Simulated assay, not measured.
Amino acid sequence: MTAYRALALQTTCHAVNGARDRVEARAIMRETISRLAQQIAASIAFIGRDCRLVVLPEYFLTGFPVREGFAEWSDKACIEADGPEYAALGRIASECGIFLAGNAYELDRHFPGLYFQTCFVIAPSGEVILRYRRLNSMFAPTPHDVLDRYLEIYGWEGIFPVARTEIGNLAALASEEILYPEVARCLAMRGAEIFLHMTSEVYGGPRAPKEAAKIARAVENMAYVISANSAGVIEAGLPAASTDGGSKIIDYRGLILAETAQGESMAAFAEIDLDALRRARRRPGLMNLLSRQRFDLYAESYTRARFYPPNTLLDGAKGREHFWRTQQEVIARLEEQGMI
């Protein structure tokens, strides 16, 4: 398959923060998945059967922790890698014949007491074929916080996974990670052609940093960016429309192919032309930025740099104050070294 349509589905997140317990939270998740099944099927009926890829927003299943600590959020909102939620989402992918991408808080038996914000891709077979754990987060654990142990279990391919599929080489980016060029670059080094960007962000218009970053990540890596934002987050205690609007698809030249305004929408769909992308990557010339990269020049600087430290959660979960304190220590050290 060299050309097909993709959809960045902008849907409302029904948060579980107000749920009294795990049972009520799971009921909200089931309702969300049932609603998504209808929205996805109806959207494909409108777009056409050549819609083979659907990307859902960040937090679509649960929202995000507001006042909840590690233990409470783990029990209430985090799902198991082999849990019923993935099975239900797998049925949607299978019944619709699509690759379905989303983002959820997930438990990992190797790291009791922690959870990871996980971007996933489910194939039309119903199988999860990609599981990327967010690497940059303000208040949530990441693989970097337990790096040595994580590498022992999953290796570097588990840190920067790329799924090679019939619809292209898929990789995932979570939310603000669009602002970190190194994450997308490491995925591009492993062959990523399509970045699936699950986000829940303030839609700031064309001059906002994240909007500029989406175009930059597409151009510098010669890759498609499919960015699905939420249509608001309700029942989390925050103003519902704080994160609403601007889902879009950007091609490998940085051109916005489709974009939607605020509210629930399937308007952000467009054709993904793999042949055109691959021709551009194979064509010598000024605009073939990927083939002209001189990574050897940068390697030493990255190797020597010491900014945010790894492995700070190897001994278990800590509260939000840990993340504040760690960042403050980094800033103080960089200031002392004359770097900021």
Rank of each mutant, 00 (worst) to 15 (best):
E321L: 15
E201Y: 12
L286C: 10
E259L: 10
I249H: 00
L56M: 10
N288E: 09
D296G: 11
I167P: 00
L289T: 08
D273F: 04
V183H: 11
T243H: 09
R134Q: 08
D145M: 13
L61W: 00
F160W: 08
R292F: 01
R283F: 07
G205S: 04
I28Y: 09
N136V: 15
A19W: 00
A236V: 00
D75K: 03
R281H: 13
L53P: 06
Q38W: 09
A276Q: 07
E166D: 12
C13I: 15
R333H: 09
A305E: 12
A42Q: 11
R190Y: 01
R207V: 11
R281S: 03
Q117V: 14
A93T: 04
S137L: 05
R292N: 13
T12F: 00
R52N: 10
S74F: 01
E72M: 06
E220A: 07
Y224V: 14
A41T: 14
N169T: 07
Y115C: 07
R306K: 06
T12I: 09
Q327G: 14
I249R: 00
I234L: 02
G245N: 03
E106I: 13
F70A: 14
M138D: 12
F116N: 04
R304P: 01
G245Y: 00
R207F: 10
C96M: 11
V55A: 11
L9R: 08
E211R: 09
V121Q: 09
L107N: 01
R134E: 10
A332W: 12
C51G: 10
H144I: 12
I44M: 12
A192E: 05
G155R: 04
M222Y: 07
G83F: 02
G245A: 05
R26V: 05
R30P: 02
C96Y: 04
E329W: 03
N136A: 14
S265F: 05
K76L: 15
G168H: 04
D50M: 03
R279K: 13
P112S: 12
L297C: 05
R217Y: 03
Q262V: 15
V183A: 07
S247Q: 08
N17I: 11
E300G: 09
L89Y: 04
